[in-house]
Each structure stands twice: as C-alpha cells, then as structure tokens.
Amino acid sequence: MATAPEPAFIRRFTVSERAIHWIHASVFFSLLVTGAILYFPTLSVAIGRRQVVKDVHLWSALAWVVAVLVVVIVGDRRALRRVLREADRFDADDGRWLTGKRAPQGRFNAGQKVNLILTGVLSLLFVVSGLLLWLGERDTRFRLDGSIALHDGATLVSLFLLVGHLYLSLIHPSTRHALRGINRGDVREDWAEKHHRKWVEAERDDRPV
C-alpha cells in the first residue's frame, strides 16, 4: 500500500462506494418528495400537476437504475464486491452488537450491515412494485391488487430506516463523524478505533512495516 502516511486518517470508502451512496440518497429524496405529493391529498391538491409529478417520479427511478449500472460498469467493482462480502458476514461480535451489547466491529457495524441488506431488499421491491404499477396502468396483465400495498409498505419501512439513518449520521454525537467517510472517503483513525476496531486492526496488519 503506497499511500502517503497520514496517521490521523484512515480511508474507509472508495469513490465508487460513495457514488452509489449519494446516487441512492439523492434519487430516494426525489422519489420520496414526488411520492408524497402523489400520496397525500393535502399535497396532491396543493401541487396538482399530477402527470408532471408522476413523470418526475418515474424518470427519477429510471435515472437511479441507469446511474447505479454506470457506477458498477465503470467503477471499482472490487470495492463494491467487498461491500457485499462484508454485509454478508455476521460473526459472534455482530450478534452481541445486535442484542445491544458492545462488541468490536468491522468496517461496517452490524446495524450498518442490516441497513445495507434492507436497503438492497427495499430497492428490489420498489423496482418490482413500481414497475407493476406503471405497466399495470396500461396493460391488464400487470395489474395486481397487491402492487400498491407492497409499494406503500416498502415506503413505510424505508422511512423508518431513513429517520434512524439520518439521526445517526447527522445528529448523534458519537456517530456523526461517519458522514465524513461517505463524503470525503476517510475518517479519523482514533474514531475508527473506537467504533470499528476490527477493521482498523486489519488495515494495520495489511500495511507494510
């Protein structure tokens, strides 16, 4: 590893990982706002222009699919695969962490792995239900009365996750340093030692002496 020695900071996320995160965040926001307008009568009536709002909603979803594909194709697939691998693995420390006890964590703590998995599941369910709703408007073959329930249910779960996610990343004092990592790529090593010890130790093991 030939990085310039910066003892204070440790690189946590590559450009590709950060790109995926911010694409997801910005599109989610757009979908949430337009979705809320389509869903809540007060907003539907106040904003009107249902067809325009629907179009923005659909094009946002399409943009998400395309943007993610672009990052996967031209980006650092190795880094992205590493994310999947890490999210896949839960050890005894993760188990303890999820029951509320403190235990040393890796680059992603157990809660973050759960968030990753759920976000992946919800993205899939949104695409499926959204596609069915869109196609079903024109073609009876795609009309299922469970589509809107799934779309609504996924929204509710997503909002739940989002509130927690935003709280921890923007407000909660001990964790909000993580925002730097997803923004600029690196985090303070001393902070990382406290919150993601196994990762820091593994990184040190990898560094040439």
Binding site: V121, G146, G153
Partner: peptide, 26 residues
C-alpha cells in the same frame, strides 16, 4: 473473522417475502 454468510440468506428471504406480498398484501 469470516463470520457466517447470513446476509445473502436474509436478502433472499426478505426479497421473496416481499414479492409474495403481491398476492396477500392488499
């Protein structure tokens, strides 16, 4: 260090449950 590959199982299980809700969700 490796841990158990629970993540993919959870992903597939939850995704399947979600998709099945197309039948019972309403």
């Amino acid at each position: 260090r490796e841990g158990v590959p629970v993540g993919r199982a959870a992903f597939l299980g939850l995704a399947a449950a979600g998709i099945s809700s197309l039948a019972w969700g309403k």
